[in-house]
């Protein structure tokens, strides 16, 4: 029998996301055990992209909830359409108050927000809860409850039970310590920066026309840059930007144009402090290590 997560890995690769083995296993498990998947890792390693790719492999709808400080239920779960409610109340002035109330608090006036939308789909969607660490602890507790029973109680309307259970992917950047309860509930995968081979494959899958040798050199160079003492390590998106720039310049080997490489490093290095640390000497030393 083929190992199930090799199929998953192939599917993900098919939509342009090259996973490592552990991630494929985690994705397979979240489908078999129906647990949410918590992804942690440094900024720029492609955590959000996992959710997107997963939705594409299953041809499912991607519902994304971006968390922020002060995110509450009315922005995440549901809200009533107040303007229309007020209009409706005015239009029915003099009518039986009970009937008006029932009308105004009906499905018609309910605004779905991502979490409610995610449990009311025809087909199971992928629910991406991005940067959960930015939301408050209270919201995290509420989310935990939702992820446990997949039902929502709206006081005016009653309980809404999920028609389908979404695949839930949570990402965290570690700006706040998440609760143990949430961690226990979720499968966990720590997303590391890709190794050179995987990063080269990522470049190739996004820029199919780039030279294979050049892609490997770029991956090596970025790998070396990440080992330098930088405040912001370059992420995968930065690598792709840089690769796109260099590919457009019709370059054969990185070492042929050290000056150009140094100039275009701006794609990869994003803070002034790091920029000043990466002098010409440093960049040519790194270039010397690229095979």
């Amino acid at each position: 029998m083929p190992i199930p997560f090799e199929t998953i890995a192939a599917q993900l690769a098919g939509v342009g996301y090259i996973p490592d083995r552990g991630l494929a296993a985690a994705v397979w498990l979240m489908q078999t055990l129906s647990r949410p998947l918590l992804l942690e890792g440094e900024a720029g390693v492609g955590k959000t992209e996992v959710g997107r790719a997963l939705a594409r492999t299953r041809d499912a709808k991607l519902i994304r909830l971006q968390c922020y400080e002060g995110l509450d239920q009315s922005a995440a779960l549901y809200e009533w359409n107040y303007q229309r409610q007020l209009l409706a109340i005015k239009a029915r002035e003099g009518a039986d108050a009970q009937a008006v109330e029932e009308h105004v608090f009906s499905e018609k006036y309910l605004l779905e927000r991502p979490l409610l939308a995610a449990i009311r789909q025809e087909r199971p969607p992928v629910l991406l809860i991005d940067e959960i660490d930015r939301a408050d602890e209270e919201f995290e507790a509420f989310l935990l409850e939702l992820l446990a029973d997949f039902q929502v109680t709206i006081p005016e309307l009653g309980t809404i039970v999920a028609t389908t259970i979404p695949l839930v992917v949570l990402t965290s950047n570690g700006t706040r310590e998440l609760s143990d309860a949430l961690r226990r509930r979720c499968l966990y995968h720590y997303v590391d920066f890709p190794d050179i081979d995987r990063e080269a494959r990522i470049i190739l899958s996004h820029l199919p026309r780039i030279d294979v040798a050049l892609a490997t050199q770029i991956a090596q160079m970025v790998g070396l840059l990440r080992k330098e003492d930088l405040r912001k390590k370059p992420g995968v998106a930065e690598t792709l930007d840089w690769a796109a720039t260099l590919a457009g310049l019709d370059l054969r080997h990185l070492r042929d144009e050290p000056e150009l490489v140094h100039e275009t490093l701006a794609c990869v290095i994003k803070t002034a402090e790091d920029r000043s640390r990466l002098t010409r000497e440093v960049s040519s030393r790194l270039l010397g290590m690229v095979a």
Partner: peptide, 26 residues
């Protein structure tokens, strides 16, 4: 469940599966 499933047959596939399940933090 994992042990009983197709992953349980080989250690190479058991490791990533159990790791995703049992780990909670970095």
């Amino acid at each position: 469940k994992i042990l009983a499933g197709p992953c349980g047959e080989r250690r190479a596939s058991l490791r990533p599966a159990l790791r995703a399940l049992f780990c909670g933090r970095q």
